[in-house]
């Protein structure tokens, strides 16, 4: 034991010295080259190209109609890491830091007051926690869910629709509840499976298989693990409805429509407020009325004209409030 301990001691002495050396060599952070453009950073829990939650925000910032230098820290589902990244961006003097995850709220409440000149944008959340340099956003995901549900009920011949969800929480519930409402209004039976995980693709796939066994001939689902369920839809030639981002690329012939989050609508408003000196303090809802929620139809799927008309009627209804 003694000898082992001596080895361990040396190991740490050496590694410690190494660490000190490297720190000593290190200089200051590189501040991003602003060059007049607005600097924006996104901190998000999943991959920036996840075809779901995170990608919707990256696409939105890229769609903004102004000159922007964007940096991204993604895959930080661990709140501590996200907090470090948020603080780091603020320290670097980034103008606008988007904390794209509900779970980051508590960290933001600590960080935001230390950087009064920085605008923090946080969601999905319905309030700004009383912070005057934080804007909050959340989607009325049930609206698109409803529209998708109306269409699903109309194209289903068996009258049974399967839904694959992660855990019964957050905006997945909003979307799924909206969907169920829309589909049941159209006379369909909706079976909902929450697999218990945002990441388990295999379980999502088998959940979809189980729905098909039980006569479901239309499927939908929410969160990033649905890629597994879409695969099942493809092999069984069953139509799919997407949400969060446009999922047509997953199944070009079978995705009927996707509810897409166009965060740029509310981001634009927030940045305009920032230009006029308001750094935060307001909450925004993304909905059909303000054009933030858009049902994007897939031209590769031949949707009957009357179903499309019904969908557009539902959209009009939701847009009117």
């Amino acid at each position: 034991m003694k000898t082992k301990m001596r080895f361990t001691a040396r190991l740490f002495a050496v590694l410690g010295a190494f660490a000190l050396l490297a720190t000593a060599c290190g200089g200051d952070d590189d501040t991003p080259e602003a060059g007049g453009a607005l600097t924006v950073a996104i901190v998000a829990p999943s991959a920036s190209d996840d075809l779901a939650f995170t990608q919707s925000m990256v696409d939105a910032v890229n769609a903004l109609d102004r000159e922007i230098t964007l940096s991204i820290t993604d895959g930080t589902f661990i709140v501590e890491e996200a907090a470090a990244a948020i603080r780091g961006y603020a320290e670097d003097g980034i103008n606008v830091v988007i904390a794209h995850g509900t779970q980051y709220g508590a960290s933001l409440a600590e960080i935001a007051p230390d950087f009064p000149d920085t605008t923090f944008i946080w969601g999905t959340a319905t309030d700004t926690q009383g912070l005057d340099n934080v804007f909050a956003y959340h989607p009325a995901a049930d609206q698109g869910g409803y529209v998708n549900g109306v269409m699903a009920a109309a194209i289903s011949t068996t009258g049974v629709i399967g839904v694959v969800g992660p855990i019964e929480a957050g905006d997945a519930v909003a979307y799924i509840n909206g969907f169920v409402e829309g589909a049941e209004a159209g006379g369909a039976t909706v079976n909902v499976t929450y697999t218990g995980s945002f990441g388990d693709v295999a379980l999502a796939a088998e959940a979809a298989e189980a729905h098909i066994t039980n006569n479901a001939d239309v499927l939908t689902g929410s969160a990033q693990m649905v890629v597994g369920a879409v695969g099942v839809a493809v092999s069984n030639d069953v139509p799919w409805f997407g949400t969060q981002a446009n999922q047509t690329s997953l199944a070009p012939n079978l995705v009927v429509a996707s509810q897409v989050y166009h965060w740029e609508v509310v981001l634009e408003e927030m940045l305009a407020l920032r230009d006029s000196g308001t750094k935060g303090g307001q909450a925004f809802e993304l909905n059909m009325a303000n054009g933030g929620l858009v049902i994007e139809f897939n031209d590769g799927y031949s949707l009957p004209a009357d179903v499309k008309a019904a969908a557009e009627a539902a959209i009009a209804e939701k847009s009117a409030g």
Partner: peptide, 21 residues
């Protein structure tokens, strides 16, 4: 597989889906 099938059939209600997991 059985748990997933029961969830799809509604034998396991949504409110306890995680407990069934």
């Amino acid at each position: 597989a059985t748990v997933l099938q029961w969830k799809a059939l509604g034998i396991i209600p949504v409110s306890i889906s995680d407990l069934a997991g």
